Simulated assay, not measured.
Amino acid sequence: MPFREFFTACSKGDQMAGFWLLYRLQNRSEHKLTRDFWTFLLNRSARRHGGYVGPGAAIAGEPVLPHGLHGVYISRFAVIGTGCRIYQNVTIGEVNGRAPVIGDDCLIGAGAVLVGNIRIGNHVKIGAGTVIRQDLPDGCTAVAQPPRILERGTADDENDKPGLAGNKSERPGP
């Protein structure tokens, strides 16, 4: 594959192996000029599909990104183990310069948010839309937050209000 086609595929997110190659080259470069060049290519690639991987993030191996880097934010302070599967719109963020440490073979569902100085164990599954702010032990599964009831009404209150489904006299007919 010619360089131009390879670079275009990396930029679109079709070629994640190429993205991780650029990422490794950036982290290994010792000279500022070459590191800036790799950073430019990485930022171009990541920005095309709304993702970000911080330049100092410690990522062992190549994480599996089934949807590419679409909406994935990985803090520059994050540590990610081998074999992790990260779906779209995941945030691995920092608080006061401290980011999560994620173990090996973890699954992080779409839209999950992991923030702060927390440790995620090995073989952990995090469900879609889950917000994690505490440590998780090895092999556990974390799912969505429990719902919190802000205001409680009675069934009679709902039927008395005009325009609600419980009040048949106000319902428009077919």
Rank of each mutant, 00 (worst) to 15 (best):
P2S: 15
F3P: 07
E5P: 02
F7S: 14
F7H: 14
G13N: 03
G18H: 02
L22N: 00
Y23F: 06
Q26T: 00
E30F: 08
E30Q: 12
T34F: 15
R44Q: 08
S45L: 06
P55I: 15
A57H: 02
A60G: 05
G61F: 10
G61M: 07
G68Q: 01
A78K: 08
G83S: 11
R85Q: 14
I86E: 09
Y87L: 15
Y87D: 13
Q88T: 13
T91L: 12
T91M: 10
G93Y: 10
E94I: 11
V95L: 12
R98L: 12
A99Y: 08
D104R: 05
D105P: 01
C106T: 02
C106G: 11
L107V: 08
G111H: 06
V113W: 00
L114K: 01
I120C: 06
G121K: 03
H123L: 03
I126Y: 00
G127L: 09
A128Q: 01
I132K: 02
R133S: 09
Q134M: 05
D135A: 03
D138F: 06
C140M: 04
A142D: 09
V143I: 14
P147M: 12
L150A: 10
L150I: 15
G153Y: 14
T154A: 09
T154E: 07
A155H: 08
D157P: 06
E158A: 13
N159S: 15
D160I: 07
G163R: 03
L164N: 13
A165Q: 10
G166V: 09
N167K: 11
S169Q: 09
P172W: 14
P172A: 14
P174M: 06
P174K: 05
